[in-house]
Simulated scan of single mutants.
Amino acid sequence: MGLKGYIAKRLVYTAFLVWAIITVNFLIFTAMPGSPIEAYMSSLKGANPEAFKRLAEHYGLYKPPHEKYFLTLKNLLTLDFGYSERYRSSVLDVIIREPLPNTLILMGTAEVITIIIGMLLGVIVAYKRGGVLDTTLVTGSLLTYSVPIFFIGWLLITFFSLYLHLLPTGRAYPVEWIRNPPSTVFEYIIGRLYHMILPTITLIIFSVGGWILLTRACILETITEDYVVTARAKGLKERTVLYKHVLKNASLPLITNIALAFAGMIGGAMITETLFNYKGMGRLTYDAIFLTGGGSDIPLLQAIFYILALCTVVANFLADLLYGIIDPRVRYG
């Protein structure tokens, strides 16, 4: 089977997964006790009968189960998530207006830095396995990876914000911007970066240990292979051997985890964003689950779960395609 046939096969499999995601999404919210939409409407103050009627028509509240299912199928495939009475806007607009860009900026920055540092240190400690550096970094990685992320964030806030007064305790941007928005692009970038420092460091400290351990394990599996010995016998520099030969051939598990990491970042970091009052996808999910008046924002939650699952499927599809490009041992067949 050639590359085109392989891509066609993966596309069919991806389409099946999307259908399964929509079906599970439908079953989860249908199987909830009572009427989730009615519970959602009752939690909103000032909701009028027209609003309830609009939601009932969108979700087919009073239609037979099979009609309701096909209606859900159509809505999710067209990204029509309905209208959020809480935000007085379409659900898709609520997501892409502020939370999604904020999360992409924060999580994207943290993920890129974490992956680069973790992979580089992972290669180094695998090369120097058994030494002081290896023992220190492995122990430190296990320690930071096992500490709750809210505790790491709390320590950073206490030290840098409350004690030294160097960095803000939270928010995605200065509170003064609500009345006086930044006048220049430079001012905007500096303000956003200034408020991103603590949550970004929190995510890096929590996640980098996992990447160090994963990279180290992958490198140790391949560093003793015959082709590594041959490369060294040819007189290649050790750096070239490690990063061009060893890391490249040990990268399949890393590619999968990188793809899933970037897919998962769409969902945000609920604990970190809530701790730092950062208006991203994680904080949006938290607010949707725990509404002020009780209940949950069902339209918003359904959209968030679907988008996150969809991004995971797409990331896996891209990872499968990259396997054959990076590792010639993988064949499309």
Rank of each mutant, 00 (worst) to 15 (best):
T78A: 05
T30P: 10
R54Q: 14
E50I: 15
R10F: 02
G82S: 06
L71G: 06
K63W: 05
Y40E: 07
Y83H: 13
R54V: 15
I37Y: 08
A39F: 00
H58T: 14
P36Q: 04
P49N: 08
E38A: 10
Y40R: 06
A51T: 15
P36K: 05
Y69W: 10
T30F: 12
K68S: 07
R54N: 14
F52R: 13
E38C: 04
A8W: 14
I28P: 09
L61R: 12
L55R: 08
A20L: 03
E57V: 13
Y40T: 10
G60W: 09
F52V: 15
E38F: 00
L11I: 15
E57L: 10
F70N: 07
Y59L: 02
K63S: 10
N75L: 03
H58P: 13
L71W: 02
T72D: 04
M41T: 11
Y69I: 01
P36W: 03
K53V: 14
T14S: 05
V24H: 01
P33L: 06
F52P: 05
N25W: 06
Y40A: 03
A15G: 04
I21H: 01
F52H: 12
A39W: 02
F29Q: 05
K45F: 02
E57P: 07
K53I: 15
A56R: 12
K45P: 06
P64L: 05
P64C: 03
V18G: 01
H66A: 04
A31Q: 13
R54P: 12
R54W: 05
E67I: 11
P36D: 00
L55I: 15
L79I: 14
E67L: 09
M41S: 06
L44I: 14
M41K: 08
F26P: 08
Y62D: 15
L44E: 08
F26M: 00
Y69G: 07
H58F: 13
G82V: 12
S42C: 02
P64D: 10
F26G: 01
L79S: 07
P49M: 06
K68F: 04
K45R: 09
A39M: 11
A39C: 01
Y62N: 14
I37M: 11
Y40G: 02
F16A: 04
G60Q: 11
K74W: 07
Y59P: 08
G46M: 09
N75T: 11
I37G: 00
L73D: 02
L77A: 01
K74C: 04
L77I: 13
L27Y: 05
H58V: 13
I22D: 00
R10T: 00
I28R: 07
E50D: 15
A15L: 12
T30W: 13
L76G: 06
T23V: 08
S42P: 05
F52N: 11
L71I: 11
K63E: 14
K53W: 08
K53Y: 09
Y59H: 09
M32F: 09
Y69C: 01
T72V: 03
V12C: 00
T23Y: 02
A8I: 15
L27T: 10
T72W: 13
G46D: 14
V12Q: 02
E50Q: 15
M32L: 15
